[in-house]
Simulated scan of single mutants.
Amino acid sequence: MPELIVPTVRLHTAWLKAHTEWGSGQHEDGFGLGQSDEVESPVGFAAWVARLTGEADPAKAAGTGQAGCTYRWIVERDQVLGGIALRHGDSDHVRWAGHLGYGIRPSARRRGLATWAVGRMLDEARVRGMDRLLVVCALDNAASMKTIERCGGIFEGTRDTPFGPARRYWIEL
């Protein structure tokens, strides 16, 4: 049975296996991995995990000028299957990337994990007092479109983003 967990240094090796499976240059939404993050070494990985967990704290996020973000990893038997992020607020980044971002490693796809994880994060959004979420996906990502629609997403239209044109959906909570 999968579970959503707070990012942890305990799963460094497992996370690296998932990261390797995506391959070089692949986009892994939901993990908050930036170009400057160094995750190969234990020290770099620990710094990255600390940044991720710190972004969930509204007081720490406010000090950075960021709206904040709650990250969770999708884990089963100490294997990292994917990641999901709930972005807080209404920043420029949220306006083009959406409130939710997620990714499932290739070997774990087609199991309903994304739909399951989005449903859990909708509960987290309700707890945070959010009443409406923007969710965005690439025009050609049929699996993500189905996930968003299964979770109540209503198609708004398409817009350009820094990664190309994307489909935009709203989920009312």
Score class of each variant (00 low, 15 high):
129 G>D: 07
106 P>M: 11
92 D>M: 13
91 S>G: 09
90 D>V: 08
122 L>K: 00
128 R>L: 14
123 D>E: 15
93 H>M: 14
91 S>D: 09
106 P>N: 08
119 G>P: 00
103 G>W: 00
89 G>Q: 09
112 G>P: 09
118 V>S: 06
111 R>I: 13
107 S>P: 07
100 L>I: 15
109 R>S: 08
119 G>N: 14
87 R>W: 04
112 G>M: 12
122 L>V: 11
90 D>Q: 14
88 H>I: 04
89 G>F: 10
129 G>I: 09
114 A>Q: 01
88 H>D: 06
98 G>R: 00
87 R>S: 05
116 W>Y: 13
120 R>T: 00
111 R>A: 14
98 G>Q: 02
128 R>Y: 03
118 V>D: 05
115 T>Y: 06
90 D>T: 11
97 A>Q: 08
122 L>Q: 05
106 P>T: 08
106 P>H: 09
125 A>F: 06
121 M>Y: 06
92 D>V: 15
93 H>C: 06
113 L>W: 00
85 A>F: 00
120 R>I: 06
120 R>S: 11
115 T>G: 15
117 A>Q: 03
124 E>D: 13
114 A>K: 01
87 R>Q: 09
107 S>L: 10
124 E>N: 02
87 R>P: 02
91 S>H: 06
87 R>F: 04
108 A>R: 05
127 V>Y: 09
107 S>T: 12
87 R>I: 00
109 R>H: 07
116 W>M: 11
105 R>W: 10
119 G>M: 07
112 G>Q: 05
119 G>V: 00
117 A>E: 02
124 E>H: 09
102 Y>E: 01
112 G>Y: 11
88 H>N: 11
93 H>I: 15
101 G>S: 11
119 G>K: 13
108 A>T: 13
119 G>D: 13
105 R>C: 12
113 L>G: 02
86 L>A: 05
126 R>S: 10
95 R>P: 03
87 R>C: 04
94 V>T: 10
109 R>Q: 15
115 T>F: 09
87 R>E: 04
113 L>E: 00
85 A>V: 03
102 Y>P: 02
106 P>E: 09
90 D>M: 10
95 R>S: 14
86 L>D: 02
86 L>V: 02
120 R>W: 05
119 G>R: 14
85 A>D: 07
126 R>L: 07
91 S>M: 08
119 G>W: 01
114 A>W: 03
118 V>T: 11
95 R>I: 08
126 R>Q: 12
116 W>G: 07
93 H>N: 10
94 V>L: 07
118 V>H: 04
101 G>I: 07
87 R>D: 02
114 A>H: 06
126 R>M: 06
107 S>W: 04
123 D>L: 14
102 Y>C: 05
85 A>R: 06
127 V>T: 15
129 G>M: 08
123 D>V: 14
118 V>I: 14
109 R>N: 03
111 R>V: 12
120 R>C: 13
115 T>M: 04
114 A>P: 01
92 D>S: 14
125 A>R: 01
97 A>W: 05
85 A>Q: 10
90 D>C: 11
110 R>F: 11
99 H>E: 08
122 L>H: 03
108 A>Y: 05
100 L>H: 03
128 R>Q: 15
102 Y>L: 10
95 R>T: 13
123 D>A: 14
96 W>M: 05
97 A>Y: 08
86 L>P: 00
87 R>M: 09
113 L>K: 00
97 A>F: 13
